[in-house]
Simulated assay, not measured.
Amino acid sequence: MTAPRRIRRPIRRPLAAALAVAAATLLLSGCLEYEEDICNSGEYPVLSVGGTGSACVKDGKEPDPGWARHPEGKVPLKVDDKWDVYWRTHTLDKNGKIIDAPKS
């Protein structure tokens, strides 16, 4: 008497299902982090002189009075990046010097 033969079943469906579940888990768990841009394409960020306000200005246009470009190398690009957090507690005075932001 011989042992019964095992029938080999394709593993494609269970494998595909497992991969789909793994991908959904990554997306829903926050492992793939989304970073929001400070400004839209074609704009650059500016900050209010003497305050912590910020805005975006179209490329090629100068900021309105009372607003200034960020110092070179200290421009926030993404929400909550190093420079976005920094400019929440710092600002520029009327001479362009970095100062602590006034307490609100």
Rank of each mutant, 00 (worst) to 15 (best):
V21T: 12
A55R: 01
D81K: 05
H70T: 11
A17S: 08
N95C: 01
D93W: 09
D81S: 08
G50C: 14
L19P: 06
K97R: 06
L19W: 03
V85A: 08
P10D: 12
R5C: 08
H90F: 00
N40A: 15
A20F: 00
I7A: 14
K82C: 05
R5D: 11
L32P: 07
P63C: 11
G42Y: 04
V21A: 15
A55E: 04
C56M: 00
V49Y: 00
L19C: 10
K78C: 05
H70I: 07
S48Q: 15
R6E: 10
A24Q: 01
Y86V: 03
R9A: 10
I98E: 15
G42M: 07
S104H: 09
A55T: 05
D59V: 09
S41K: 06
M1R: 12
G73W: 03
L47Q: 02
M1T: 07
E35Y: 11
P4W: 08
K78A: 13
Y34E: 13
S54N: 08
E36F: 07
L26T: 09
W87N: 12
E72N: 12
K58L: 11
V57W: 00
A68P: 04
V79Q: 09
R9W: 10
W83Q: 13
S104T: 06
T89R: 07
G66A: 02
S41Y: 04
R69G: 08
P102S: 11
L26F: 10
I38T: 11
W83S: 07
W87S: 10
C39Y: 01
A24D: 01
N40I: 13
R12L: 12
C56F: 00
K78S: 09
D84V: 04
D37H: 14
Y34W: 14
E62L: 10
E35H: 15
P65L: 09
G50M: 10
S48A: 15
K103W: 04
A101K: 03
K103S: 08
I38K: 07
L32V: 15
G66C: 07
T2F: 13
G42V: 06
A20W: 01
I7L: 15
T52N: 12
Y34R: 15
Y34A: 14
I98R: 05
K61L: 12
N40H: 15
K58F: 08
R9K: 13
R6S: 14
A17M: 11
R88Q: 13
C39M: 02
V57D: 02
L27S: 01
A3W: 05
T89W: 03
G42L: 05
S54Q: 09
I11C: 06
T91H: 03
G42K: 02
A24I: 08
L32H: 11
D37G: 14
G60A: 03
S104V: 05
D84R: 01
D100R: 07
I98A: 08
K78D: 11
A3G: 04
A20T: 07
R69T: 10
T91L: 02
P10M: 02
R69K: 14
K97P: 03
P71K: 07
A3V: 04
C56Q: 00
G73T: 06
Y86L: 00
L32K: 10
V46R: 02
G30V: 04
T52F: 00
E35T: 13
A101M: 06
D84Y: 04
T25W: 13
L92H: 02
K82V: 11
V49A: 04
S48I: 14
E43Q: 09
S104N: 07
P4A: 09
E62D: 15
G50N: 14
